[in-house]
């Protein structure tokens, strides 16, 4: 079982919000910058890697019961986005790692996307 905590360590990520989720299990991972893709492809218990940092992304994630978001490439995140995530105790991480490398590192742990049967 892979926990949020393990991902934080692996990607050397900052936890910007949602500290209470660190011991939850990550069931699958996805990556997208498009809102409708996130809504279509994600499942509960999933973490999504994204370069998308508008506050809207948090609302999207909340609507679809995402476990958390990982913002890649150390991008700047609007304070509103972080505030919105905190208000909802939503798990928001940030890593310096690029999207491709982040995906590779997570895939190597055995985590799969929503297109691969469990």
């Amino acid at each position: 079982m892979i926990k949020v905590r393990d991902i934080v360590a692996l990607l050397e990520a900052e936890v910007l919000s949602g500290e209470s989720k660190l011991d939850e299990e990550v069931k699958s991972v996805g990556a997208s910058d498009m809102i409708s893709d996130i809504l279509a492809l994600t499942q509960p218990g999933m973490m999504v890697l994204t370069g998308y940092t508008y506050p809207q992304v948090i609302r999207t994630a909340l609507v679809t019961d995402l476990l958390g978001l990982i913002v890649v490439r150390g991008k700047n995140i609007a304070p509103e986005t972080i505030a919105y995530a905190r208000e909802n105790d939503f798990l928001l991480l940030r890593t310096r790692s690029y999207l491709y490398s982040s995906c590779g590192k997570l895939y190597a742990t055995g985590l799969r996307g929503s297109d691969v049967g469990k």
Binding site: M34, I35, S36, D37, L39, Y54, Q56
Partner: peptide, 15 residues
Amino acid sequence: ERGFGAGMGIANMKR
């Protein structure tokens, strides 16, 4: 730029 416009919205409603 704001992440909309994948053209998946109606497909998602259907799904």
